[in-house]
Design a protein around this nucleic acid. Structure first.
Lengths: 371, 371
DNA sequence: ACAGCCGTAGCAAGCGCTTTCTACGGAAGA
DNA sequence: TCTTCCGTAGAAAGCGCTTGCTACGGCTGT
């Protein structure tokens, strides 16, 4: 029924071993023999049995890319970019080369699913795993992740973090590409302050996400530096309170998921709490879109009545009306680099971790406050 | 080094066969034995060797989801939805159940890569493959696809089309979920016509894509029905000319990729060719965004000077200013259904193919032309 | 009380491939 | 001319798991 290596070998009048070597190209085979084998492969339309191959070789050609939400272009762009480096070249004609199967796994931001996918990938003996986006800052989960990743690593799986800070105990990992979320957040808020804003609302992402925390910390650093910080800006203050502690009582900060709707509702809430804000910083561009809609629905104009800013600089942000001031993250480049790292095509950055700069993009949605 | 089934068996004082059966749960095992085995699995932190398992069982738990461009939310939403049905439940505690690994493969719209991924999935003995989005209408490629899919199908892989018409020779496939692109396109243009528009520009997607063709055909049907069709509306006219034949000489239609930039440039071109258009229909929302930017950069207002409409109703469309008139496609629902079909959780529609309705969403970006 | 069953568990034969080690011929060295 | 190598191909032993078949008790039926 299905064609096997042995069938090819028989047709090419060689041993299975030879066919295997031709296909893997890691052992000298005479040109004439190789050709004969290749022809047999073609004639029979042979397709390697992946599981059998992986079993025997104890490695597979799977590379996992974990994302929080694939419907979000933030992840889509990174994942797509990574895949360009992994999926191998277009392969116009030749046999499959060093091609790997890049698989994108959508965790939905759930720690359990993240772990489940890691197990599934471990089960498949994945060649590499790329973890993208912010991590959940839950000690228990982090420990579980560290343990799982350590196990993967010493099973030979390469680990790459992309847009995600390395784990505290990040020992076994190959490389981490971290975005400068804190710096970007700081510069964004500095920009607003320099414009003259003093009351700035912040629509934050979900708590317990590194991305959320870093961006917010940057924001607070800027406020603090300008003498506007009502609360301690440090991330390690208030170590006593529960998770919602230090942030929960800042009326100018509202947390919510990274989506449009949350941006809308959080903004309404913010406007209710503090009708005097002159600017709103959103956790990301998608949230900023929702925030803008809310602002408008309240009858205010952007940026005349209120400034709005986002983060990420997703493709649609430049087309918003007015164009969104935001912080540009080189998503595609980072994803591609992560892909290369996963493939071992590129050396890990010194120290294993590289910080990727975030660039402030000043556009029409921010302006000096009135009066 | 790594823990194998045999290790677990030894620790539980049973045979490997029994452990296997406990794990797969498809053979009666006494409760006490099962418990002993499960404990051993936990104690040893055993993880099944996927390749070995797949090899022995001749099936794998991989499900491939092919998309044209994962950075585009159109695909991200469908893929994410499909994955919710495939990745298995959160798995709060128990062992891995009937979980499959849903893998998203980004073809970048390239026929070669599409085929390559299919081969890779075939190699992995994938349990199912979901193909999303428009297909490339190239006879040669279609034949190759049909052949490849047939091979996959009779290797036991389930095939599901999602938002993609079935192949002409679609024999072996399990199910196809097709969007009513033609109907949606028609209703959208009818809406514009009923508003009083007579000169309507169309920024189409890439040629040779079913999606492109169907939406455009709908548009032309509407024009034709209103007596505005300058050219034959049928898709099978002008069979003599080269690919660019019948469409190439309609000055009101410009083709380009499905991205923002292309929308921008094509619109500029359109406005140059026909400064008297009062409305522009874009191939999809992303393109519409670019089109809107171009219109605005030309100093025209939407919708007072010119109406703009899109297709898909992506999440950001409602937040555009003015909100974008578009055609809503139930992307999430379709993706989820495709996922269920791929898992065999749902029966294929009668005849193997279901058409999914497209709903016209009238919003602020379209209005009656001036004068 | 004995034959026959049913419920469980074990044996062992692969699944299709990779890879180590061995074998063979001819070219080069002595 | 005989030995030594190198280049190339084959034999065969698994990789870790699944599963058909067999085996073994204890129960039921008569």
């Amino acid at each position: 029924m299905t064609v096997t290596l042995a069938d090819v070998a028989a047709r090419a009048r060689v041993s299975p071993a030879t066919v295997s070597r031709v296909l893997n190209g890691n052992y000298p085979v005479a040109a004439s023999t190789r050709e004969r084998v290749l022809r047999a492969v073609d004639d029979l339309d042979y397709v390697l049995n992946g599981p059998a191959s992986s079993l025997a070789a104890a490695t597979s050609d799977l590379v996992g890319i974990l994302v929080n939400d694939i419907a979000d272009p933030f992840f889509g762009i990174m994942a797509g970019a990574a895949q360009t480096q992994i999926g191998g070249p277009g392969d116009g004609s030749g046999r499959a080369g060093g091609e790997k199967l890049a698989v994108i796994c959508n965790t939905g931001g759930s720690p359990e699913r993240e772990l489940t996918y890691l197990t599934l990938l471990q089960r498949q003996r994945a060649a590499a795993v790329v973890l993208t986006g912010g991590a959940v800052e839950n000690p228990e989960h982090q420990a579980a992740m560290a343990a799982k990743l350590a196990k993967l690593a010493d099973a030979g799986t390469r680990i790459v973090f992309c847009g995600r800070p390395p784990l505290p105990e990040g020992d076994a990992l190959v490389a981490a590409l971290a975005f400068d979320n804190r710096g970007g957040g700081r510069r964004l808020t500095e920009h607003l302050i320099s414009l003259g804003h003093r009351r700035i609302g912040y629509v934050a992402g979900p708590r317990e996400r590194t991305t959320t925390r870093h961006r917010l910390e940057g924001h607070r650093e800027a406020l603090h530096a300008a003498g506007l910080g009502a609360l301690p800006a440090g991330g390690d203050a208030g170590g006593t309170a529960t998770g919602s502690g230090d942030q929960g009582d800042d009326p100018l900060v509202v947390h919510g998921p990274y989506d449009r709707r949350s941006g809308y509702e959080a903004t309404l809430e913010l406007l209710r709490r503090a009708p005097d804000v002159t600017a709103i910083v959103a956790a990301n561009d998608t949230v900023a879109l929702g925030a803008s809609a809310a602002v408008r629905d309240q009858g205010m104009r952007i940026p005349q009545d209120i400034s709005v800013a986002g983060f990420d600089d997703l493709p649609f942000s430049v087309d918003a009306v007015p164009a969104l001031t935001t912080v540009r993250l080189p998503l595609f480049e980072a994803g591609a680099r992560a892909g290369r790292l996963a493939m071992g095509k590129e050396n890990p950055p010194p120290g294993g971790i590289a910080t990727i700069a975030a660039e402030l993009m000043i556009r029409g949605s921010t302006a000096a406050p009135r009066g």
